[in-house]
């Protein structure tokens, strides 16, 4: 049940886009058509589901204070957490590269669908944000961290697909000229964020 609540919380209550504005850059840039939005969304779920648990292991067995005790008892006082930014981003950049190569080799069809989006993801704030939130919230097990990663990925997917669908429709409406494109997208996202706020305060 614990897993389920973390998952649902990641999608609705603590939605990456509407509650924290993470990954806004690609959210705004790649949401012109539903098809590409779905592709990028799946790539984000995929990468979050992989990098969050890896960063969790890194955090709990290398970086946090006293995490190195599995090597030697005398390392209990070592605190490497100031290195976490550089380690997390290195893990993310190399994992994205690795995932890209593996997918290209073993699942060419999936690569065809996700291929162009994968390199974009290394600098998507949602991925690093996922790792940093995982660090801040101190999930007790790796399972919960993984579920958190997948849940926030699904939340991000939901948000980008929804805005892409709205943008496809809005092309046929009469928007004031200076507001066209970017401006109206911001305002719609704000309105969607208000709608998502109704999930706030729900205790799951």
């Amino acid at each position: 049940m614990e897993y389920m609540s973390i998952f649902v919380k990641g999608i609705f209550v603590e939605n990456m886009i509407f509650a924290y504005f993470l990954g806004m850059c690609s959210y705004l840039a790649v949401s012109k058509t539903v098809k590409t939005a779905v592709g990028l969304g799946f790539a984000v779920i995929f990468v979050l589901g992989i990098t969050v648990p890896i960063n969790y292991l890194l955090e709990n067995y290398v970086l946090a204070e006293g995490a190195l005790t599995w090597l030697d008892e005398s390392y209990a006082t070592i605190d490497l957490s100031f290195l976490s930014f550089i380690m997390f981003i290195a893990v993310i950049a190399s994992m994205v590269q690795l995932v890209e190569m593996i997918v290209e080799k073993f699942a060419p069809a999936l690569y065809g669908a996700l291929g162009i989006f994968l390199p974009l993801i290394a600098v998507n704030c949602a991925i690093l944000g996922g790792a940093l939130f995982m660090q801040e919230r101190q999930y007790p097990t790796i399972g919960e961290a993984t579920v958190f990663g997948l849940g926030s990925g699904v939340g991000w997917w939901l948000a980008i697909v929804a805005i892409a669908a709205i943008r496809e429709k809005i092309r046929y409406s009469h928007v004031p000229a200076p507001l066209r494109g970017l401006g109206i997208t911001f305002i719609i996202t704000g309105l969607m964020g208000m709608a998502f706020m109704s999930f706030m305060g729900i205790e799951i």
């Binding site: 504005f21 200076p178 507001l179 401006g183 911001f186 305002i187 704000g190 964020g193 208000m194 706020m197």
Partner: peptide, 23 residues
């Protein structure tokens, strides 16, 4: 959070109505 988006949207609106080549 949602109001941040709307405020930026309004700033864009003002900027682009002044600077029409950005439309």
């Amino acid at each position: 959070p949602p109001m941040a988006l709307i405020v930026v949207g309004i700033i864009i609106w003002i900027q682009r109505s002044r600077n029409t080549k950005l439309i």
